[in-house]
Amino acid sequence: MTTSMAEILAAHPLVAGLSGDGVALLVGCAKNVVFAPGDLLIIEGAPADTFYLVRRGHVAIEVHAPGRGGIVIETVGPGAVVGWSWLVPPYQWTFDARATDDVGAIAIDGACLRAKALSDPAFGYALLTKVSTELLARLQATRLRLLDLYADRDER
């Protein structure tokens, strides 16, 4: 039994709830990919052309520093979106994203998706609402981590 790309996509939180037509538009920009532990999905400074919907495994969002290697900012797992910079100019990645274990993901061509969103504003709005939902959750989690919750009061 094979599962179609549309079914795979519809199971991902970013896509779940979009109309069938919307999913069909996404399918045209999507392909299945796998990464081995240590592989870079995204490289800081590179053109932000392809982003990923994680299906299995974990991806570390990193920034590298001299002598310290990759500093992990956040680890994301199944259901997560990896990469946002494809949405807005200058379409350039800000951080690295590295597979920490065997990762299965759907790669989506950002330029392809932007073109479809532009030509179908209703789809574009629905897509952006889903993207915003995920972004907001990540922003809120980041804000909470900024609080340094577990630190002593005098360490904050």
Partner: peptide
């Protein structure tokens, strides 16, 4: 993993 504890719920 690195991240907020609530992120573990999804996993």
């Amino acid at each position: 993993r690195v991240g907020l504890v609530t992120a573990l719920l999804a996993d």
